[in-house]
Design a protein around this nucleic acid. Sequence first.
DNA 1: TTCAAATAAGTTGTATACAAATAATCCAAG
DNA 2: CTTGGATTATTTGTATACAACTTATTTGAA
Lengths: 180, 180
Amino acid sequence: MKKKNDLIPDIIDNLRRVFQVVNAQSKRAELATGITGPQLWTIKTIAETGPIRISDLARKIYLHPATLVGIIDRLEARGIVTRTRSRVDRRVVLVDLTNAGRVLVAKSPQVAQGLLVSGLETLPVGDLETLASGLKQLVTLLHAQKLPPQLILSPEINIPRRKIGKSSRDQNERKEANHV
Amino acid sequence: MKKKNDLIPDIIDNLRRVFQVVNAQSKRAELATGITGPQLWTIKTIAETGPIRISDLARKIYLHPATLVGIIDRLEARGIVTRTRSRVDRRVVLVDLTNAGRVLVAKSPQVAQGLLVSGLETLPVGDLETLASGLKQLVTLLHAQKLPPQLILSPEINIPRRKIGKSSRDQNERKEANHV
DNA sequence: TTCAAATAAGTTGTATACAAATAATCCAAG
DNA sequence: CTTGGATTATTTGTATACAACTTATTTGAA
């Protein structure tokens, strides 16, 4: 039987490969449909929940509000969603689908994941159960852990965190990035 | 027992959640370390393979050469890697680690995945085996499927794609893009 | 030999993705 | 009623990520 120290690197590497392949597939689907994966997820969620606040939507799809604003901008520019400023609380913006958006969502379910779905469909039920079970545990475990561990790599590489701030803009902002 | 049609959406949604959470975690780790996930993966791969061509490196880490150029630019600017134009074939650029880069890689293994690793470590071996097995099947299946299915969503949304490239390579060269 | 096709790296444009800061608004304490 | 803190969306800045294109170079075929 393998030990933990053998299994964990395997899991991470395979997760990374899945990320890359699924991302690649998603881009291809985008070329074919004109709709990106995040955009599709967004409009499907709006379709489920009627008019919804930006912040609630962001929470639902695990995206940063700043990211969602850009996605909504593009969907709105294409006439797929609308923004409405709430009259009850004027800080709030409600997004909803246009008719065109509803048509789009109705047509899209079978397209959502393309290669991933069609690939999964070829697997026997037993394998799917194994995968579903493993992923569920992974998600549970990821969401259970709230605080990121302190990860100090090396002081000379570390970028000093803002602090004083005050005026001054930019500086070594060190933003971040992505991926596994 | 659940049927396929119930399991597949579960798998996809959970995969998407894992993507989001791991990406977010990776961003946080960058704030703490100054090194992004893709950058770390890149320098670790360079560390394994000595001087390596941009194109070979891109293939190894499943990234588009255009993406890798940007990553190498930033690593070079920080004195972590060097670029050398090959004298045998002047089209080729070889990247390698600087001493600072080697020090960085030596210090980094335990930091690689942060939350994901520490979370996985809390799982019992049996769960890890379930997860590892499921992911392995998923990767095998994703790589087995070479050609993307034709995904046509709706003509009025479709963005006209650049004519067909006639012959030309690509095909399995195809690198690509983004998110679930 | 010559030149067109192929190859390698880099450039440009678009779309995520998120932290930090900002603007507008709401709300509660005094 | 006023003011300061909190909340909501947005803006700004950095870093992926990839398709399509461009430039420089190599190679192969006529």
